[in-house]
Write a protein that binds this DNA or RNA. Structure first.
Length: 491
RNA sequence: CGGGGUGUAGCGCAGUCCGGUUAGCGCACCUGGUUUGGGACCAGGGGGUCGGGGGUUCGAAUCCCUCCACCCCGACCA
């Protein structure tokens, strides 16, 4: 078979780039740092969106839409928030172009300078809290639980398709609550939803935990995260949920009247996942042959490739294909019959492997005679000839089996690449030689965390929720520690 | 934003050092035919602002200046 992807062993980064392009997921655009998401890639994102959207609505959230532009003055209201985002904001300063007097195209009209510059949202807390101020008067107006699907812009130095682009698509939830407890509960609910989505739909095992103060969202009191481990041993932060306390309420003066007639600031959360999930999905399961998609998110779940010599033969095969695909479609399975005659079967096999289609059926004259079909599964590349009779049930179960199997593979990989270390030397050695998640004791100070980051480029991914209490000493300073935290090099 | 690399047909590349017919090759594409159980073959055909702009020269893909984009490695970040 022709080699179309750089093997992972040769260059993991190059393999990833090749895969995104060759599987037709996305490509670089004419605009620096911004990508074009192609139809096949966007179809996966749309599936993710529709599942998440339902999960949000099932937990009492509603969708809305807020502007792309944020007045500069809004931005400066929450000190930590500005500091966190200031360095990567795109700013609109003018509202008009004019023909260049020298005839060489158009130039910005200097007369058309905005009185107040507009920031292109890197996130929407400020515009949303400025709006919520007008929506909230009493406890009866609470809670407000809103989500928006949007694009945001963060002017990144170095970009990579899906993993980090200057513009990306995401959803951002913004909620307002009466009490601290309720806001904290919301923060937890949402990180649980993300974890659930990652594991059940993406087949991606994740670790839930809290970020250290240093790694927290700008303006949050607490950031919860789901962290996934990629095949190269690096961690990928895949979703975050923030407890914002009363910081934004105070910054935007959002008060409500309690049922005792007193005034208080409302409590806030925000949470989001982005097209970065696409990167996670790609890197989690794929191999040197191409993409491996979890059946639940695959735009095409079953592809059927006919093998024939003459048009007459194709016609006979097509009739059988119709009998096979009708019951599959009735079960809600996405089936594609590729009867294009300008590509040979072998070409198609390779192509659909590259695109990660979970199940491939091949039907030729031999099968017509025997009443069989060849079934190939993408995750293991195994092929099996089965009877057409009852093949719909077989395939339905196979899809479930593939979903389970790739999840299991990912979780086994993570287990093999999660290690406890007790000394800083051991930590550095494991990090350099094996990577993965490292469980180690840390004294809880920002100083130590930064020293480790500077020495090794590893960061604390999270303080896991399900970590066991264990007395120990910080691997760097020897100070006491009550539990281990998770370190890794990260994307 | 620093260091390194690349930019020539849709894709992958040769040609650039050392300037000189009409810029070439493979894949893809179009037409015809033979093929079809793991990326088919033959014949014919179309497709190029040589990344953009400026300069040197009788003459520039090739030399000089400048800008842009992408990739890799750093710093920054989801």
């Amino acid at each position: 078979m022709a080699k179309v992807l750089t093997p992972r062993s040769e260059s993991y980064a190059q393999w990833y780039n090749d895969l995104v392009l060759k599987a037709d997921l996305a490509e670089n655009s004419a605009v620096r740092g911004c990508m074009v998401i192609k139809p096949y890639g966007f179809a996966i994102w749309e599936k993710m969106q529709s599942v998440l959207d339902k999960m949000f609505k099932d937990t009492g959230h509603q969708n809305a839409y807020f502007p792309l532009f944020i007045p500069k003055s809004f931005f400066s209201k929450e000190a930590d928030h500005v500091e966190g985002f200031a360095k990567e904001c795109a700013v609109v300063t003018h509202y008009r172009l004019k023909n260049n007097p020298d005839g060489s195209g158009v130039v910005v009209d200097p007369e058309a300078q905005l009185e107040e510059e507009l920031i292109i949202r890197p996130t929407s807390e400020t515009i949303i809290w400025n709006t919520y101020k007008n929506w909230i008067q009493s406890y009866r107006d609470l809670p407000i639980k809103i989500n928006q699907w949007a694009n945001v812009v963060r002017w990144e130095m170095r970009t990579r398709l899906f993993l980090r682009t200057a513009e990306f698509l995401w959803q951002e939830g913004h909620t307002a609550h009466e009490t601290k407890a309720e806001a904290l509960e919301e923060t937890e609910t949402m990180i649980n939803i993300y974890a659930d989505f990652a594991e059940k739909w993406m087949a991606l095992p994740v670790i839930q935990g809290a970020k250290t103060a240093n790694e927290r969202f700008a303006g949050a009191l607490e950031t919860y995260t789901i962290e996934a481990l990629m095949q190269d041993g690096k961690a990928l932060q895949s979703g975050t949920s923030h407890f914002l306390g009363q910081n934004f309420a105070k910054a935007f003066d959002v008060k409500y009247t309690t049922n005792e007639g007193k005034e208080d600031f409302v409590w806030a959360t925000s949470w989001g996942v982005s097209t970065r999930l696409m990167g996670a999905l790609i890197m989690a399961h794929s191999d040197d042959h191409g993409l491996v998609l979890p059946p639940k998110l695959a735009p095409i779940q079953v592809v059927i490739v006919p093998i024939y010599k003459k048009a007459e033969e194709l016609a006979r095969i097509s009739q059988v294909v119709e009998k096979i695909s009708a019951p599959l479609k009735a079960k809600g399975i996405e089936v594609k019959f590729d009867d294009k005659d300008n590509k040979k079967p072998g070409w198609k096999f390779a192509e659909y492997e590259l695109k990660g289609v979970p199940v491939r059926l091949a039907i030729g004259p031999r099968d017509l005679e025997n009443g069989t079909v060849e079934v190939a599964r993408r995750d293991t590349l195994e092929k099996k000839v089965v009877a057409i009779e009852g093949v719909d049930v077989y395939i339905e179960e196979l899809l479930e089996d593939i979903q389970t199997n790739i999840y299991k593979k990912a979780i086994d990989f993570r287990a093999e690449n999660t290690r406890k270390v007790n000394s800083y030397d051991e930590f550095k050695k494991v990090l350099d030689e094996q990577g993965g998640f490292i469980l180690a004791h840390w004294d809880g100070t920002e100083e130590t965390e930064l020293k480790i980051k500077e020495d090794t480029k590893a960061t604390i991914r999270c303080i896991p929720f399900d970590g066991e209490d264990e007395e120990g000493v910080c691997m760097v300073t020897g100070k006491p520690s009550k539990r281990r935290v998770i370190f890794a090099r990260a994307y």
